[in-house]
């Protein structure tokens, strides 16, 4: 083979890059809707599992049936900074202020809007010198009311584990103190170690634990290093769960973001507890 000129090399590289990017951009555009629907379905399934639905219940069901099930049993409520019920359109306005296009947002549900909002606000907070000023203030609560009265309040939980952000849902009984269930659905923890937060034995430990102490102050729930029974005495054990061996840092991350997430919802929970 004769030695190619460097101009030929550049042209070839350019063509390859162009072809590859056109193919990828095309695929991504074509598949985006489906992927989005899958993500939404996954979220909905997780919210339902956090209140005690079993994964087996979704087997053989079409996505539409699962969405219908969710719509029937759950109500998504958006609350603003002052813990008042906020309108979805209000959030769209806020997003438009942040530079989003209105027509892109109008078909989105509250879960997607909240996601968009959170990620944008986080980005802004990261770039600014005063991260606190970008506190989103909005809170999303999924109320489980299979028979008309609220039987659980589900809140999104999110924060850093060891490697990356862990996302999940926590369901609280109507007393807003007892945990009804927890799920983790998105994480990048080490397979076999931190990734075991997804396993049933770990998640089921949270059921029945309390987030408030006797005086009604928020204590959150802590993943201990090792076994609770060996470390925590008496009644206190109600705020602790067993850790995963080899995944101490994942546990620490979970502790921190549970505390932060619950703390940000606490003022709102207080008003709800007063009402009932």
């Amino acid at each position: 083979m004769s030695k190619p000129k460097s101009s030929q090399v550049f042209i070839f590289a350019f063509i390859i890059c162009l072809v590859c990017s056109v193919i990828l951009a095309g695929a991504s555009t074509l598949l985006q809707e489906r992927q989005k629907a899958n993500v939404r379905l996954d979220i909905v399934k997780n919210i339902m599992q956090s209140v005690g639905h079993k994964p087996e219940e979704f087997k053989g069901k079409k996505p539409n049936e699962i969405f219908a099930m969710y719509e029937k049993e759950f109500k998504d409520l958006l609350f603003d900074k002052n813990n008042q019920v906020a309108d979805q359109h209000f959030m769209i306005e806020e997003l438009v202020k942040l530079g989003y296009e209105r027509h892109m947002l109008e078909n989105e549900g509250p879960i997607e809007l909240m996601n968009t909002f959170n990620s944008k606000v986080k980005l802004l907070a990261k770039r600014s010198n005063d991260p606190k000023s970008y506190d989103p203030g909005f809170k999303l609560v999924h109320i489980w009311q299979p028979n008309g009265t609220p039987e659980a309040y589900v809140i999104p939980i999110e924060g850093y584990g060891l490697w990356d952000i862990i996302k999940g849902y926590m369901a609280l009984e109507p007393d807003l103190n007892t945990v009804k269930g927890i799920t983790f659905f998105e994480h990048k923890e080490t397979p076999g170690l931190g990734a075991r937060i997804e396993e049933d034995w770990f998640k089921q430990q949270f059921i029945g634990k309390k987030i408030l102490d006797d005086q009604g102050h928020l204590t959150s729930i802590t993943v201990v290093r090792g076994k609770v029974a060996e470390q925590i005495q008496g009644d206190e054990a109600v705020h602790y769960v067993d850790g995963i061996s080899g995944a101490t840092l994942t546990g620490k991350g979970v502790n921190q973001f549970l505390r932060e997430n619950l703390a940000s919802y606490e003022p709102f929970f207080k008003t709800l507890r007063k009402d009932t």
Binding site: V9, F12, A13, I16, I23, L24, R34, Q35, N38
Partner: peptide, 27 residues
């Protein structure tokens, strides 16, 4: 393929295919 950049070209082709497979799986 110019032999000087053949590895890069291969990687571009391979990663395009892998990303395609990944996107299809996600969908």
């Amino acid at each position: 393929i110019p032999s000087k950049i053949r590895i890069i070209v291969m990687l571009a082709v391979v990663s395009t295919l892998v990303t395609l497979v990944d996107q299809l799986l996600k969908a």
